[in-house]
């Protein structure tokens, strides 16, 4: 069964005078273990698509099913709980809570899910060493490099075993070396934990690391290729 099933989804914005069809009839599905990237020119609808999949936004047409949930049927507060339980997010920047240490940030969602303390600690240690930051437990985000911060964000997103991780341009603010190492880690976790990653990028080099490349243009999928 697909982790994410997107059926003929539309998203139109009416804020401006002309209607903007940010997503214009997309049908897609993601399977467990996918390592998929969404690419396309600026304004093609990458962010919009990821937001819809993550339940941050509601489509104006079509339906999205995630882990058996029909997202349009969830009330706003249920959507928040849905995100907490089923989706891991990595944003382009400002991912972390500035007053918490790396370890505290990683255990944040476990905390929301009320994991017992001992279990939290074990998982946090495991993840921080997984992302190569076992020596930075007590560093604040401001004491970490951009790449390190993104790695902490990935660790946090992964912590509670969500259905998939959504990352909208996770490398956009990173230099190429940090971007590479972040992708190394994502790929490793995709492999080790069988975690589904769906991310977007502008960067050709990042794109090349994906196992599946979905290209958007004007809100439509113009290609969907596997590339190993």
């Amino acid at each position: 069964m697909a982790v994410v099933q997107i059926n003929n989804v539309y998203k139109a914005y009416h804020d401006t005078e002309v209607e903007v069809k940010a997503i214009n009839g997309v049908t897609l599905s993601f399977e467990k273990g996918d390592f998929a990237v969404v690419v396309g020119p600026s304004g093609s609808g990458k962010t919009t698509l990821l937001n819809l999949i993550g339940g941050l936004d509601q489509p104006t047409g079509g339906e999205i099913l995630v882990a058996g949930h029909r997202l349009s049927e969830l009330r706003p507060s249920e959507l928040i709980d849905f995100r907490m339980e089923h989706v891991g997010f990595v944003f382009q920047s400002y991912n972390l809570i500035p007053v918490l240490t790396a370890a505290e940030n990683v255990s944040f969602i476990m905390n929301l899910q009320k994991w017992p303390k001992e279990k939290r600690k074990v998982r946090t240690d495991e993840l921080l060493s997984s992302v190569g930051l076992s020596d930075r437990h007590n560093s604040r985000p401001s004491q970490l490099s951009g790449g390190q911060q993104q790695r902490v964000a990935v660790a946090r997103a992964l912590a509670t075993h969500p259905e998939f991780i959504l990352a909208d341009e996770p490398t956009a603010n990173l230099d190429s070396k940090s971007a590479e190492s972040l992708l190394d880690i994502m790929e490793k976790l995709n492999h080790e934990e069988q975690m589904t990653f769906i991310f977007s990028t502008h960067d050709i080099r990042v794109m090349k690391r994906a196992h599946r490349v979905i290209t958007l243009e004007d809100g439509k999928v113009i290609s969907d290729e596997l590339s190993f």
């Binding site: 941050l56 507060s77 995100r83 339980e85 997010f89 500035p98 944040f108």
Partner: peptide, 16 residues
């Protein structure tokens, strides 16, 4: 604002 948006996105209830 961004931080609040991030927190609600990753699943913190607004009430919390």
């Amino acid at each position: 604002k961004r931080e609040f948006g991030m927190l609600v996105s990753i699943g913190m209830r607004k009430r919390k």
